[in-house]
Amino acid sequence: MAPPESTFVDTPEAISSLLSFIPREPNSSPSIYIDLEGVDLCRDGSISILQLFVSTIPHIYIIDIFTLGNAAFTTPCSTDPSVTLKSILEDPTIPVVFYDIRSDNDALYHHFSIATANVVDLQLYELATRTGSNLRYLHGLSKAILANANLSIIEAMKMDEVKKKGLQLFAPEQGGSYEIFNRRPLPQDLVDYCVQDVQYLPVLLRRFTQELGSMDRRWMVLIRRETEARIALCKKDFFVKGRQNAIAPVSFQTLRTRGIIVA
């Protein structure tokens, strides 16, 4: 699967233009996929990059939050001045897809006063549809892609290569630093990493949605409840990061152990 074309966005004029390409039909199928990169990504750190994949084009916009700051979210659309990236993220009728909303949402809320509304959290979709006995822990994005995106061997090897090159640049345990997300121009290996983090999200959504369609309806109710609980974490006094965030919600484990999987 070749990655979609991408554009690095670092001016208000480019923000204004790209907003005109984002579908905003109420309650339509998701076409907006988002991921964030930054330094200690949460209320205590900062946002450097926002990857925005508009699947209907398809095109990936790598938005330079480090340079643009609040203008990335408040600049009006070139064709409709009432529309901004902030208004889209806060619109309860427009679904926006993330993979694990928690840190991203905490950063958006505390740094830019954005209250995300209609979130689709694919990490919870993955957990709900996963089969097997290892259901205690959540899966990271790479593991979910490899297990569900039907990649060829060559595609999987390429994905691993892109991930490793990115990690070598920003992961402290590999000699990197998250501060590199603030270097301009952004290194090409990081551009590739940012693109890869969103390019497979539509594939995952299609796969999980199809599987959930044949499962007990209570799973979707539970996913929505847990998603709202994740969003609400930004309003607590502090945001917890660490290994405890890899533990699956108890409610998911309880529902599965009752044998409620297929309608």
Rank of each mutant, 00 (worst) to 15 (best):
S48D: 04
S48W: 10
S48C: 08
S48P: 15
S48L: 14
I49M: 09
L50V: 14
L50D: 03
L50F: 15
L50T: 11
Q51D: 09
Q51I: 02
L52I: 15
F53P: 00
F53D: 07
F53G: 01
V54R: 02
V54H: 05
V54C: 12
S55R: 12
S55H: 12
I57A: 12
I57S: 02
P58Y: 10
P58T: 02
P58C: 07
H59E: 08
H59I: 15
H59G: 00
I60V: 10
I60P: 00
Y61K: 00
Y61E: 02
I62C: 01
I62G: 02
I63E: 13
I63H: 07
I63K: 06
D64V: 09
D64R: 06
D64W: 08
I65M: 05
I65G: 03
I65R: 02
F66E: 09
F66N: 12
F66G: 08
T67L: 14
T67V: 08
T67W: 04
T67M: 07
T67C: 14
L68M: 15
L68P: 13
L68C: 07
L68N: 13
G69K: 08
G69V: 13
G69Y: 13
G69Q: 15
N70L: 06
N70R: 15
N70C: 11
N70G: 09
A72M: 08
A72E: 04
A72D: 12
F73I: 08
F73L: 03
F73S: 07
F73A: 05
F73N: 09
F73Q: 03
T74Y: 08
T74F: 04
T74I: 12
T75W: 04
T75K: 13
T75A: 01
T75G: 11
T75Y: 05
C77V: 11
S78I: 15
S78K: 12
T79G: 00
T79N: 15
D80F: 11
D80T: 14
D80Q: 06
D80G: 14
D80I: 07
D80R: 11
P81I: 10
S82P: 13
S82D: 15
V83C: 10
V83L: 00
T84A: 04
L85F: 10
K86T: 02
K86D: 03
S87N: 10
S87T: 14
I88G: 09
I88S: 01
I88T: 02
I88D: 08
I88M: 05
L89H: 01
E90Q: 11
E90F: 13
E90S: 08
D91G: 06
D91F: 13
P92H: 11
P92N: 13
T93S: 14
T93Q: 09
I94P: 01
I94N: 09
I94R: 04
V96H: 01
V97C: 00
F98Y: 04
F98M: 08
F98E: 00
F98W: 12
Y99N: 02
Y99W: 11
D100R: 05
D100M: 07
I101N: 12
I101C: 06
I101L: 14
I101R: 12
I101P: 10
I101K: 05
R102K: 11
S103D: 01
S103M: 03
S103I: 00
S103V: 01
S103K: 10
D104E: 06
D104I: 10
D106Y: 09
D106T: 05
A107C: 03
L108T: 00
L108M: 06
Y109E: 11
Y109M: 04
Y109C: 12
H110R: 11
H110M: 06
H110A: 06
